[in-house]
Amino acid sequence: MLRGIDNRLTPDLLRHLKAMGHGDDLVVADANFPGDSCGARIEYLPGVSATEALEAILSLLPLDPYVDAPARTMQVVGDANAVPEVVGQFQEIINRVADQPAPIKGVERFAFYEESKQAYVVVQTAETRLYGNIILKKGIVPPN
């Protein structure tokens, strides 16, 4: 164990977070998400919800302030304007934890899958709530 690092973050996930560069994407995925089909790299967080994973990841990962949508979720099929409870919780976590809070942008389901295929890593959680998926674009850590 280390001080100041959330215990829900595994050693392998910490390595991926460190290895990611500015502009790389990370997907936090629910239990239904086709992670193995969409991700070249996949890390599993069994027993961890998507909201818990998001909070832990954002404690270390900066969001990219130079893009329009550094946080994107999958739109509800048939109702693109619906905001599932889990997505509302994602926004609350971003507002509270992220260094650069930003509004979440919805992405059509199949476009979300295509964006996920380009992500640096997919973090598959035990989240059972539908639409518990979010893509984060990594920002920069400025010099001290």
Rank of each mutant, 00 (worst) to 15 (best):
L2H: 11
L2C: 11
R3E: 10
G4P: 07
I5W: 02
I5T: 11
R8A: 02
L13Q: 10
H16W: 11
H16K: 12
K18F: 10
K18W: 11
M20G: 15
G21A: 14
H22F: 13
G23I: 13
L26T: 05
L26M: 14
L26E: 05
V27P: 02
V28L: 12
A29G: 09
D30Q: 04
A31D: 13
N32S: 14
F33K: 04
F33C: 01
G35S: 14
D36R: 11
S37A: 14
S37I: 07
A40G: 12
Y44E: 05
L45E: 05
G47N: 06
S49K: 06
S49Q: 04
T51L: 06
A53N: 07
A56S: 15
I57Q: 03
I57M: 03
I57D: 02
L58S: 01
L60K: 08
P62C: 05
P62G: 03
L63I: 08
Y66P: 02
D68V: 12
D68S: 14
A69P: 02
A69R: 09
P70F: 00
A71W: 07
A71H: 00
A71Y: 00
R72F: 01
Q75R: 15
V76S: 14
V76T: 15
G78D: 04
N81I: 07
A82M: 10
V83F: 07
V83M: 11
P84S: 07
P84A: 03
V86S: 08
V86N: 00
Q89I: 06
Q89F: 07
Q91V: 01
E92H: 09
I94G: 00
N95F: 00
R96N: 09
V97M: 02
V97S: 05
V97F: 03
P101G: 03
P103K: 00
P103V: 02
P103R: 00
I104L: 11
K105R: 14
V107F: 09
R109Q: 06
R109D: 01
F110D: 10
A111L: 09
E114V: 08
S116C: 11
K117I: 09
Q118C: 14
A119L: 06
A119Y: 00
Y120R: 12
Y120L: 13
Y120I: 03
V121H: 00
V122I: 15
V122R: 01
V123P: 07
V123K: 03
Q124Y: 14
R129Q: 15
R129C: 08
L130R: 14
G132N: 04
N133C: 12
I134L: 12
I134W: 06
I134F: 02
I135P: 01
K137F: 01
K138R: 15
I140Y: 11
P142T: 12
P143D: 03
P143M: 08
